[in-house]
Simulated scan of single mutants.
Amino acid sequence: MCCSGFLKMMMFIFNGAIFLAGAGILGVGVWVKVDSGSLTGLLESADAPSELSVLANVSYLLIGVGAVLLVIGFLGCCGAVKESRCMLLTFFSIVLIIFIVEVAGVVLLFVFNDLSDQIVVALEQEVGKSLGEQFGRSDSEGFTSVWNTTMKEFQCCGAKNYTDFDGSPFNTENVNVYPQTCCNETITVGVCNEYEAERSHIAGCVGKLVQLIEENAVIIAAVVLAIAALEIAAMVVSMVLYKQIGNKA
């Protein structure tokens, strides 16, 4: 009886935390979706490039993850408190599926790790082409706004560097002028022209993104391991409770 009570308490604590985390993530996802002035709002515009428009789905991802966590937390808590074998089995099945997907994702990351450089180069070329064709064009204001916001936020220039803007409508109409974010403000004299942009050496946004991921790789790995350990513990506890409830019946 004491062991059963302890297991119930652990299930309630684990899944209470999961439920609250799900509610928080769901709330953030809804806020990002309804905030039309956010970056995702610009990304959903008709002028946004296809390479970046994928990021607009981040709100749907957050809403989906939050909803799943809410369901998992609810099933785990109610299943333990009400001693419902059906809820506990459903909880175990969902967590097991998520765990398998996570393991598969980690395996795929290792498999495709060697292709990361080629993917970055291909992405820089494709996005750079879009910049050269659309940045500063009168009918692509959404595209231009997205990139101005991105470059200012990450302190980067273009996909690879300032040369991505060569021949762009912005570069042509302003007579060989580049976006101000492509020049180092501390050394730039006057407008951001080719000479100032070249000597500023501002990194491209694709490289900045890769660098950001690499710098936080240890933190990401630690979080994934912690989540995996919590999932395993929750599955074990749920099955022990499931068995004990079955023995009582």
Rank of each mutant, 00 (worst) to 15 (best):
L115N: 14
R137W: 08
V127H: 01
T144I: 12
K129V: 02
V127D: 00
A80G: 04
Q134G: 01
S84V: 03
I97K: 08
F92E: 00
T90D: 01
G158V: 07
L115F: 15
E124T: 10
V146Y: 05
K152R: 12
K152F: 09
D117E: 15
K160W: 14
E102T: 05
V111L: 14
A80C: 07
F112Q: 13
E141M: 12
S116L: 14
E83A: 12
T90H: 02
C157E: 12
G128I: 01
D114F: 12
G79C: 06
F92Y: 06
C78Y: 03
D117R: 15
G132N: 10
G132S: 06
Q155A: 10
Q134S: 11
W147D: 03
C157Y: 09
F74T: 01
L75E: 00
V121I: 12
E133P: 03
D139S: 14
M87I: 10
V111W: 13
Q134F: 11
D117K: 13
I119P: 04
T150P: 02
V120S: 10
V146T: 12
A80V: 01
A159P: 04
N148G: 14
D114H: 11
G142H: 07
A104K: 06
L108G: 06
V81F: 07
D117H: 14
I97F: 11
D139T: 11
T90E: 02
G128S: 07
F74D: 01
G136Q: 08
E133L: 11
C78M: 05
I100C: 09
V95T: 04
G105A: 09
G79Q: 01
I98A: 04
G132C: 06
L109I: 08
N148V: 11
I97L: 10
F91T: 00
S138Q: 14
